[in-house]
Design a protein around this nucleic acid. Structure first.
Length: 957
RNA sequence: GCGGGCGUGGCGAAAUUGGCAGACGCACCAGACUUAGGAUCUGGCGCCGCAAGGCAUGUAGGUUCGAGUCCUAUCGCCCGCACCA
């Protein structure tokens, strides 16, 4: 009986579907485990071998936990809304609903072949009205909430209204506009519109005008994390700053908790670092400077992390967009400032980032130093960003590189406050220098001077300690069609939430999804939409993915997004697997939504993911062929155009040498059947060739001729009888012909082999180029395993005989190794351990049922189909999917005695047989009594004997 | 520039706390069975050496009886951020 993986896998996939083997119930009597993959946006390109890597790892872990007795939630769904889906639809002229549909069914078919244990009953798409009903609902909760800074949590906006009615906003300063201040009487006097306007400044989901990242090519606004180096993440189109009415999430209110929450979760250091940097918390001070000749109410407020350098300020710089610029600019500088402002506006974000020129303009105004009384010139420059801090800085050229360069460029004097730490050639940002020329801070180490300076500023009432964040509120609207509609009606210019019973507000089906008449979203073209004054923006791609992990817990609930009972049972995602590219987008947003839902009492935990594993990227290993371009006599150019000639990589590499010239001359003469051809010169141009017609590096020449019509008559110049291809590691992409389709591999080797090989490649977290070559080894392993059970002619091999001690030992050691490897997520060593175990059992010619049963169970997470088949043959009880994980009998794991290497000062070759349970004293006695050891010691008294369990014994003299 | 990670055979990689470096697999070599083999099995396979032995974890130091693992410097690669005051 042979290993017929095709039949076996078909049979078991069918049976598991029929019996609902992967259906999960909220059975609260059992311990839970939640394994989640980042759900995919199903692109039109289909799967390549890189995609399932994380799914296979999570599937192995989910199956493993199930064998260990956990009630495992392991769902899968689709992130179906968003820019990429719409862009794909536009590019292909298909409605996004249709293209998403077909992409998903494609995707699903490919996934199913690999044999995942997803509970598809719990599946959904973010574009399902049943799902986005609750996305809209959560949005309304955000809209209906403010962040209570005193309680440090979100609370209903209703409460805020009551505070206002009682005390005005003194205890709840306005986060949107700090200048908005009112008392209870004033609040009562505001009309409805003004009250709503003020509340909008507080809401966690709010609408306002702001500078946004506008992408003309995509026709929409993008969030900060969707813009990379001034270009859109999606498509790489230019992005410009633009003022627009926009919805935002007030994620900045959660900045601190998003930071501290990182201490409670198990993410990689890199991941935490990225999020920490994105949040960008810094400690410093805000300082108000009087402006010479201006009223005392008009102060220039700057933010600095280094108030200790207050006496090193030589000039001030304000952002060109700074509100004060207009009022302070002197008549003499007016023209120059206006010109500079025009220049700044003319530069795109991208140019600004790419060039980093030093530019700026003096405003003609001066600030007054609060302690020294000096007049400090105020400049404006694009290197100061309007969006960070106060949009104005005090420049300390001796300590800050940018200020220093600016001072040098414009020939401004530089005050040295750090003595010899400043060499006049470059700024020194040290905090360890002792301050000089610094008034009351003279003689104090900078580090200590920070607090002292703040203290003085506070005493004088011109400054205060200030924490700043780099993170901005998240733009939450898109001027596009394919997203969740906002459940918002505009009544007399006031955003009014739809009542809950009118959710979901369904996205209307439209055929044309171009922008609206005023540059609004395509929904502005829908008459029934605009007649109701509904919001024409839609939500961004990350809306639906910010809470989907909760919906899996209770996917069919019509009453609520997820019952509290369900979320309390399943709780945090125990293991979350996905790409690192979501570090600052999805992960931050979903963490914020979780904290918000927690604040409002809808769920009982405030971090969504307990442990996060980022799978590495599988790169493509591209193959190249080298086409000859010839120059010389006898029509050679035309001939080589008609008959493409390819040279092997080694020949191509030697191009330019005389040998290559001779070799190619002879070859070309033979190919074209004309010995008189004289070759003048030649060049080789590399072309990507489909990796699937290359075996390792050796080209399948017949397959190549069939690959494309134009190569049907191709001729080859070989090396050692083979055509060798060039190799380069690149991104895996259809365009580069380096994609490998998992379905092809499953057809050829079976899903079990494919799964194991994908894991065997290396650590899940690691990026690596794909190489199909080694898959044979894993396939051989499964066949070898099969032969422990069946002989081709004799049939079944297993017996009910009692295993020997040696056999037990082998199997238990294997179980232990596989278990430990699986537990610590090292699936490549897990596969290795299984291979070693099978090799050993083959060597022992073991066919004992008791042992084979155990082997099958530990194999199940890795190769579920073959495990199920073998389990059935063995007559194992129930489904192998729920078989109890074998318990290792400890006595088989250790040997009673062992040959220990004995070393003197680390130098060793002698081995001594010592009982494993020997005490330290007994070991010493045995070692020191040994004749060879005595000889080695040569009369020296040993200082100590180091006994390392299971390793080696070292005698130190 | 700043931050994080990583350097081990021809290749992918192992090496729980410092304890016999290179497990396992690929590729390669030799042999067996075969009409044949791109099937299967056996053996070999870091480098130098016939051998005994010596040298080997990017490079140079250090700590230690003992370092791939810890420390310092340096070189190289990958990832993230990039005028954030």
């Amino acid at each position: 009986m042979e290993y017929q993986f095709g039949d076996i896998e078909k049979k078991w996939q069918q049976r598991w579907t029929d019996t609902g083997a992967y259906t999960v119930t909220n059975d609260t009597s059992r311990p839970k485990y939640y394994v989640l993959d980042m759900f995919p946006y199903p692109s039109g390109a289909g799967l390549h071998v890189g995609h399932p890597l994380g799914y296979i790892a999570s599937d192995i872990f989910a199956r493993y936990k199930r064998l260990k007795g956990f009630n495992v939630l392991h769902p899968m769904g689709y992130d179906a809304f968003g820019l990429p889906a719409e862009q794909y639809a536009i590019d292909h002229g298909i409605h996004p609903a249709v293209s998403t549909d077909s992409n998903i069914s494609n995707f699903r078919q490919q996934l199913d072949r690999i044999g995942f244990s997803f509970d598809w009953n719990r599946s959904f798409r973010t574009a399902d009205p049943d799902y986005y009903k609750w996305t809209q609902w959560i949005f309304l909760q955000l809209f209906d909430s403010f962040y209570d800074k005193r309680e440090n949590k979100a609370a209903p906006i209703e409460w805020l209204v009551r505070f206002f009615e009682k005390d005005g906003n003194a205890s709840h300063p306005c986060p949107g506009d700090a200048s908005v201040k009112f008392n209870a009487v004033e609040w009562a006097g505001f009309d409805h519109a003004r009250q709503q306007e003020i509340l909008m400044y507080y809401r966690l989901a709010y609408c306002g005008y702001g500078e946004v990242n506008w992408c003309e090519a995509l026709g929409t606004v993008l969030a900060n994390d969707e813009v990379i180096n001034g270009l859109s993440e999606r498509g790489g189109y230019p992005v410009v700053k633009k003022k627009l009415r926009q919805w935002y999430l007030r994620i900045t209110d959660y900045a601190d908790r998003l930071l501290t929450g990182l201490e409670t979760v198990d993410y990689s250091e890199a991941m935490k670092e990225m999020q920490t940097n994105w949040i960008g918390k810094s400690f410093g001070a805000e300082i108000d400077f009087d402006i010479v000749g201006r009223p005392a109410t008009e102060k220039l407020r700057v933010y600095t992390t280094r108030p200790d350098t207050l006496f090193g300020v030589d000039f001030m710089v304000i952002a060109p967009e700074h509100a004060l610029l207009e009022t302070i600019v002197s008549p003499g500088q007016r023209a120059a400032v206006d010109e500079y402002f025009m220049y700044v506006k003319s530069r795109s974000e991208r140019e600004r980032m790419a060039e980093k020129k030093i530019t700026g303009c003096f405003t003609g105004a001066y600030a007054l130093h609060p302690f020294s009384g000096l007049h400090i010139p105020i400049w404006t420059s694009e290197y100061v960003l309007a969006g960070y801090g106060t949009g104005a800085i005090m420049a300390v050229p001796c300590g800050d590189e940018r200020d220093f360069k600016f001072a040098r460029f414009f020939d401004l004097p530089i005050t040295n406050i750090i003595g010899e730490h400043f060499n006049g050639q470059e700024a020194n940002p040290t905090k360890d220098a002792v301050l000089q020329n610094s008034g009351f801070l003279d003689g104090i180490v900078m580090k200590d001077a920070i607090l002292i300076a703040i203290h003085h500023l506070e005493k004088k009432g011109i400054g205060s300690r200030k924490v700043n964040f780099r993170m901005r509120d998240a733009a939450f609207s898109r001027q596009r069609y394919w997203g969740e509609p906002f459940p918002i009606e505009w009544k007399d210019g006031i955003a009014t939430p739809l009542p809950e019973d009118r959710l979901p507000l369904e996205l209307p089906h439209i055929e044309k999804y171009g922008p609206g008449p005023e540059g609004e979203g395509p929904l502005a073209n829908v008459p029934q939409w605009t007649a109701r004054h509904l919001e024409t923006n839609t939500m961004p791609g990350y809306a639906g993915s910010s809470w989907y992990f909760l919906r899996y817990m209770d996917p069919h609930n019509n009453e609520t997004f997820c019952s509290r009972a369900a979320s309390d049972y399943w709780g945090q995602v125990d293991l979350y697997i996905g790409g690192a590219e979501h570090a600052v987008g999805h992960l931050l947003y979903s963490r914020m939504w979780t904290k918000f839902l927690y604040d409002r009492g809808y769920i009982g935990h405030d971090e969504p993911y307990k442990r996060l594993v980022n799978q590495g990227m599988i790169q493509g290993s591209s193959r190249f062929v080298y086409r000859l371009e010839l120059k010389g006599s006898g029509n050679i150019e035309e001939l080589s155009k008609a008959t493409p000639v390819f040279v092997s990589a080694g020949v191509a590499a030697s191009a330019g040498t005389a040998e290559a010239h001779d070799l190619i001359t002879i070859a070309v003469q033979a190919i074209f059947g004309d010995p008189s051809i004289a070759l003048e010169s030649f060049s080789v141009s590399p072309l990507h060739v489909d990796v699937n017609i290359v075996d390792g590096v050796e080209l399948d020449m017949d397959a190549f001729k069939n690959w494309r019509g134009e190569y049907a008559d191709a001729e080859f110049i070989l090396e050692e009888g083979k055509y060798i291809c060039g190799v380069e590691v690149e991104k895996m992409s259809k365009r580069l012909y380096n994609t490998v389709n998992p379905t092809d591999l499953v057809n050829k080797y079976g899903a079990d082999t494919y799964r194991m090989y994908e894991m065997f490649l290396g650590p899940v977290e690691q990026s690596k180029p794909w190489d199909t070559k080694g898959i044979e080894g894993v396939h051989r392993f499964l066949r070898k395993l099969w032969r422990l059970f069946f002989d081709e002619t004799k049939g079944k091999l297993w017996t009910d005989q009692k295993p020997t001690e040696q056999e037990y030992k082998t199997v238990y050691r294997t179980i232990k190794k596989v278990e430990e490897a699986t537990e610590r997520f090292s699936f490549n060593t897990g596969v290795s351990a299984l291979m070693i175990g099978v090799n050993e059992l083959t060597d022992l010619k073991t066919h004992k049922k008791e042992l084979l049963e155990k082997l099958v169970v530990i194999l199940t997470p890795y190769a579920p189909h073959v495990a199920a088949e073998l389990w059935e043959h063995l007559g194992g009880a129930g489904s192998v999917l729920d078989a109890p994980y074998p318990v290792v009998e400890a006595r088989y794991l250790v040997e009673s005695a062992k040959n220990y290497p004995i070393a003197i000062n680390g130098k060793t070759r002698l081995e001594l047989n010592i009982a494993l349970d020997a005490t330290q004293q007994q070991v010493e006695a045995i070692v020191l009594a040994d004749d060879t050891v005595k000889k080695w010691l040569d009369g020296n008294i040993p200082k100590k004997v180091i006994y390392v369990k299971n390793k080696m014994i070292n005698v130190v003299v």
